[in-house]
Lab assay of single mutants.
Amino acid sequence: MTLTLTVPPGAKVRVRITNENGETTEIEVEPGETVTITLPAGSTVRVEVEVVDPDGRKRTETFTLKP
């Protein structure tokens, strides 16, 4: 399973991925970048995406991906 994120110009994104064992991976994606994350097959993962807009506003979306 893959997750692809494209960050709009001016925004910053931090992604936290937590697996079933509670292990967390965190990455930051710079403005204008596209990143593809390969998620472990057969695992349920929690993905938290934090977006910081150019004006400093933050918003966070959290979702769970199941196999």
Rank of each mutant, 00 (worst) to 15 (best):
M1K: 02
M1H: 07
M1G: 05
T2L: 10
T2M: 10
T2I: 12
T2E: 02
T2R: 08
T2G: 06
T2F: 13
T2S: 06
L3H: 05
L3A: 04
L3D: 01
L3G: 02
T4Q: 05
T4D: 04
T4C: 14
T4L: 10
T4P: 05
L5E: 01
L5N: 02
L5K: 01
T6I: 10
T6L: 14
T6Y: 12
T6W: 14
V7W: 15
V7H: 09
P8C: 14
P8F: 12
P8V: 14
P9C: 06
P9Q: 07
P9A: 09
P9R: 10
P9T: 09
P9K: 09
G10E: 11
G10V: 05
G10T: 02
G10Y: 03
G10L: 11
A11Y: 03
A11D: 03
A11R: 01
A11V: 01
K12F: 10
K12H: 08
K12C: 10
K12Q: 13
V13T: 11
V13L: 02
V13Q: 01
V13R: 01
V13A: 06
V13G: 04
V13I: 03
R14H: 04
R14W: 10
R14I: 04
R14Q: 07
R14K: 05
R14C: 08
R14Y: 10
R14T: 11
V15Q: 03
V15R: 01
V15S: 03
V15D: 00
V15G: 04
R16T: 03
R16L: 04
R16V: 03
R16M: 04
R16H: 03
I17W: 14
I17A: 14
I17E: 11
T18V: 13
T18E: 10
T18R: 05
T18G: 10
T18M: 07
T18Q: 10
N19C: 12
N19Q: 10
E20M: 05
E20Q: 06
E20N: 05
E20V: 04
N21R: 09
N21K: 04
N21S: 07
N21I: 10
N21W: 08
N21V: 07
N21G: 09
N21A: 08
G22P: 07
G22N: 12
G22Y: 09
G22C: 14
E23P: 09
E23S: 06
T24V: 05
T24D: 07
T24C: 11
T25S: 05
T25D: 05
T25I: 10
T25Y: 10
T25F: 10
E26H: 06
E26N: 06
E26K: 06
E26S: 04
E26C: 05
E26F: 04
E26Y: 04
E26L: 04
E26P: 13
I27E: 10
I27L: 08
I27V: 08
I27M: 11
I27H: 12
E28A: 08
E28D: 11
E30R: 11
E30F: 07
E30W: 04
E30Y: 05
P31K: 12
P31T: 09
P31D: 11
G32L: 07
G32D: 12
G32E: 11
G32F: 12
G32H: 12
G32S: 13
G32N: 11
E33R: 08
E33W: 09
E33F: 12
E33M: 08
E33T: 11
T34H: 10
T34W: 14
T34A: 11
T34K: 12
V35R: 04
V35T: 07
V35H: 13
V35L: 07
T36I: 15
T36M: 12
T36S: 08
T36N: 08
T36W: 13
T36G: 08
I37M: 09
I37E: 12
T38W: 13
T38Q: 07
T38R: 06
T38M: 08
L39H: 04
L39K: 03
L39E: 08
L39Q: 05
P40S: 13
P40Y: 14
P40C: 15
P40G: 09
P40R: 14
P40Q: 12
P40V: 14
P40D: 09
A41Q: 06
A41G: 11
A41I: 13
A41P: 05
A41V: 06
A41S: 10
G42W: 14
G42N: 08
G42P: 09
G42S: 13
G42M: 12
S43T: 10
S43L: 13
S43C: 12
S43A: 13
S43N: 13
T44R: 03
T44Q: 04
T44L: 09
T44E: 12
V45I: 07
V45T: 06
V45P: 02
R46Q: 06
R46H: 05
R46C: 05
R46K: 06
R46Y: 12
V47A: 02
V47Q: 00
V47W: 01
V47F: 02
V47R: 00
E48T: 08
E48I: 04
E48L: 03
V49H: 00
V49T: 01
V49E: 00
V49Y: 01
V49K: 01
V49A: 01
V49D: 00
V49L: 04
E50M: 02
E50K: 01
E50I: 04
E50V: 02
E50T: 10
E50G: 00
E50S: 05
V51A: 01
V51Q: 02
V51D: 01
V51N: 01
V52P: 00
V52I: 09
V52E: 13
V52T: 14
V52A: 01
D53A: 03
D53K: 00
D53S: 03
D53F: 15
P54L: 06
P54D: 03
P54H: 05
P54E: 07
P54I: 05
P54G: 04
D55G: 01
D55P: 00
D55F: 04
D55C: 15
D55Y: 06
D55N: 03
D55H: 02
G56L: 00
G56I: 00
G56W: 00
G56V: 00
G56C: 00
G56Q: 00
G56D: 00
R57P: 00
R57M: 03
R57F: 04
K58D: 00
K58L: 04
K58F: 02
K58H: 03
R59V: 05
R59G: 00
R59Y: 14
R59S: 03
R59L: 03
T60H: 01
T60N: 01
T60Q: 01
T60D: 00
T60E: 00
E61C: 15
E61M: 15
E61D: 03
E61K: 05
T62N: 01
T62K: 02
T62D: 05
T62W: 12
F63V: 15
F63S: 11
F63R: 12
F63T: 15
F63C: 15
F63L: 08
T64A: 01
T64Q: 03
T64R: 00
T64I: 15
T64L: 12
T64F: 15
T64N: 03
T64P: 15
L65H: 01
L65G: 00
K66S: 15
K66N: 13
K66V: 15
K66R: 03
K66E: 15
K66P: 15
K66Q: 14
K66W: 15
K66C: 15
P67L: 15
P67Q: 10
P67F: 15
